[in-house]
């Protein structure tokens, strides 16, 4: 904390004004609108709006389509998080061993971060294309018919792969930093006591890495839940048969495509509650730095 301050009555507000005004107009006001809208319902022609209380929420919670979307989101976010982190950790451990070639491999692994999720979606969509995709061809050679257009599981695999791919570099960098901050003396002591590399990894490195792991878990969950809209929209459009219609995509579909504003607003409010919980978890962690 500072001991020395400037004294000025209006200057700080002037400095804060751009940020606060933008936040108020483009964040808080729309959010409040969403909350208000979620209590309203428009008739089919958009002429009359009536206050319906919690009816929109009730309808959502009883809708099997919404339950499905929750389930799909759960499967999707868990798969993306686990897959991304496992792959990234494996790479980080390997790079951490090789001091000499660390730089080269790091460069070769971090660049996908630069590629937009929407473009990542297009790339994977292309290599898994049912008629000309190169991986579809390879899979067909070993007898697997991969068709994300008709098969729900294949569609899920496609979006999970595309979403994880564009996120690996991020987790990789954090895991690598975490691994490199594990004190060498600890590993050496364990080695002298006769612990092999595998044992050392599970008893020393992994526990010491747990803050990084936890942090990445939260961040990747948030990413998979909210920032993968582009991947879905550039590949499967939530299909086939709603099998990749995650919550964020459903808000968009119901609100923009389906023009069901009340329901879309109620979904927005539910999602906001989820982000708020995740952000709070993230920040509590960052403040306390839960060490093992």
């Amino acid at each position: 904390m500072k001991r020395v301050f400037f004294n000025n009555r209006w200057l700080p507000w002037l400095l804060l004004a751009p940020q606060l005004i933008i936040t108020a107009i483009f964040f808080l006001w729309p959010a409040a609108q969403a909350v208000w809208q979620s209590f309203l319902r428009e008739d089919a022609f958009g002429l009359n709006t009536t206050f319906v209380g919690l009816a929109n929420y009730k309808q959502l919670l009883n809708s099997s389509e919404y339950h499905n979307s929750f389930w799909v989101t759960f499967v999707f976010t868990t798969s993306v998080t686990v897959f991304t982190m496992a792959f990234a950790l494996l790479m980080a451990i390997a790079v951490d061993r090789l001091i000499k070639s660390e730089k080269v491999y790091t460069t070769l692994l971090v660049w996908p971060y630069a590629i937009a999720p929407a473009v990542a979606g297009i790339l994977w969509w292309f290599i898994f294309n049912p008629s000309i995709g190169i991986l579809t061809y390879v899979l067909a050679q070993v007898g697997i018919r991969f068709n994300y257009v008709s098969d729900p599981t294949d569609a899920m695999i496609l979006v999970v792969l595309a979403s994880s791919w564009s996120r690996i570099s991020y987790s990789f960098l954090f895991f690598l930093a975490g691994l490199q901050s594990v004190p060498g003396s600890l590993r050496e002591a364990a080695a002298i006591d006769g612990a092999g590399p595998v044992k050392r990894f599970f008893t020393i490195t992994l526990p010491l890495l747990s803050p990084t792991t936890f942090f990445l878990m939260v961040v990747n969950l948030v990413y998979a839940m909210f920032e993968t809209f582009a991947v879905i929209d550039s590949t499967t459009y939530g299909g086939p048969a709603q099998s990749t219609n995650i919550l964020v995509y459903k808000v968009y579909q119901d609100g923009f495509v389906g023009q069901n504003l009340g329901s879309s607003a109620a979904q927005s409010v539910i999602l906001m509650a989820i982000v708020i919980v995740l952000t709070v978890i993230q920040f509590r962690y960052v403040e306390k730095k839960v060490a093992y």
Binding site: Q19, L20, T23, A24, I25, F26, F27, L28, W29, P30, A31, Q33, A34, Q37, F226, E227, F229, V248, V251, Y252, G255, F256, L261, S264, A265, S268, L271, M272, V275, I276, T279
Partner: peptide
């Protein structure tokens, strides 16, 4: 706290009203 709140309101969850404001 107002500045902090932007973190909890990603554009994906308030698409329709934000579009309307713009």
């Amino acid at each position: 706290w107002i500045i902090f709140s932007t973190m909890m309101l990603p554009v994906e969850v308030r698409i329709v009203p934000t579009f309307k404001v713009v």
